[in-house]
């Protein structure tokens, strides 16, 4: 009887643990970024700045910069991909 109960408890607990872990990771990020000025808000600006900085040297379209984020418990990674044209041209000016 104990054995059955143990097995069932194990199985049931697993999805609740996953839920708790997911919430802890997510809420830690949301709380630290504060309400109103969330972390997501600086990303569009960051992207614009990156495009502007690269355009000083190479002509790229708005679409050529791709920003991705993967949030983890210990750290988050920001991945920025820039598609450069095949033969870099100096921007005018």
């Amino acid at each position: 009887m104990n054995l059955f109960a143990f097995a069932r408890k194990q199985r049931r607990a697993r999805s609740a643990d996953t839920a708790k872990d997911r919430l802890q990771v997510l809420l830690a990020h949301e709380r630290s970024s504060g309400s109103g000025s969330g972390e997501a808000d600086y990303l569009p600006k960051l992207q614009r700045d990156i495009v502007a900085a690269i355009r000083k040297h190479v002509e790229i379209a708005d679409d050529d910069v791709d920003v991705r984020m993967e949030r983890g418990d210990q750290m988050s990674s920001l991945e920025i991909n820039i598609d450069l044209p095949q033969s870099p041209k100096k921007a005018a000016g």
Binding site: R22, V25, L26, A40, L43, P44, V67, R68, M69, E70, R71, G72
Partner: peptide
């Protein structure tokens, strides 16, 4: 969260 992609959100509908 329901779809399980909460860690991958960068830009959103409002952006």
């Amino acid at each position: 969260m329901t779809m399980g992609c909460e860690r991958r959100v960068v830009f959103d509908f409002i952006n």
